[in-house]
Amino acid sequence: MTAVVPARTPEQEFQDRIDADDRVEPRDWMPDGYRRTLVRQIAQHAHSEIIGMQPEGNWITRAPSLRRKVILVAKVQDEAGHGLYLYGAAETLGADRDELLDMLHTGRQKYSTIFNYPTTSWADVAAIGWLVDGAAIMNQVPLTRCSYGPYARAMTRVCKEESFHQRQGFEAMMTLCHGTATQKRMAQDALDRWWWPSLMMFGPNDDASPHSAQSMAWGIKRFSNDELRQRFVDATVPQAQFLGLTVPDPDLRWDGKHWISGAIDWTEFQTVMRGDGPCNRERLRHRVAAHEDGAWVREAAAAYADKHR
């Protein structure tokens, strides 16, 4: 007599695949929640990349040398490319690109709060590369092993390119720190303003992050927010010391194993998240204007394509 093997439900088969560290591909069956979570996360990630072009794009015309200028142009172009890889990945889940852009433009989908801070000096461009891209790499490297294939593959491409972003930032920071007293002050001022927002990029503390457990079970998230934040602090504090800069955290201390930072002011994070950061309105307004101003190009290209069909 053959044993009757109870049939596995689609949910069980799906979880088996995740637990076996196998990848989910676009046409596989997946729970609605998994699909929704991924679309939201990938879209928010894509939006962050293209909004992220603005703070740095602000300095392209005023870069201090031709060398710095070509580097910055290449970096900002990469951010556009990263946005496009990610919108492509979101589309494999059935999302519509125009609809995603519309959700960004109408504020129904968010982007990283970090891009709502202004870049008031050239040193901010250096600090963004070093800190913001550094934090992004910490977040993104584990995503190259995310359970959803197209997202993981897009992140592999992004991470390869992001490493240049961080290094050029650190190099520019180093140049300022080895420069005049004024340049060094600019570097310190940039670190003072970007340090805490960079730490907030990892998201709320673990005890205040209700969706993390499900994302972990689904293999979307591999490490908790606090774990990744700790890695960033451990990696970055010695870099600041190397530069001869002071991390703006009076409570920062070495516990023998890790650099322990003071408490993060989450009310600031909430304020920026709500739309009341220094540049929220400006960023969105600029994004919408760029989209609307480009409408005639898209229309002309479509008319040309129709004519030659």
């Binding site: 496009l84 890889y85 492509g88 990945a89 690109r97 593959r153 491409r157 479509a302």
Partner: peptide, 20 residues
């Protein structure tokens, strides 16, 4: 296969693919 993109026609898709 490396990914996908949106473009109005084949020619634009090719140029766009080069850039992306």
């Amino acid at each position: 296969h490396v990914g996908s993109l949106r473009a109005p026609d084949a020619h634009m898709a090719l140029r766009h693919a080069r850039d992306v």
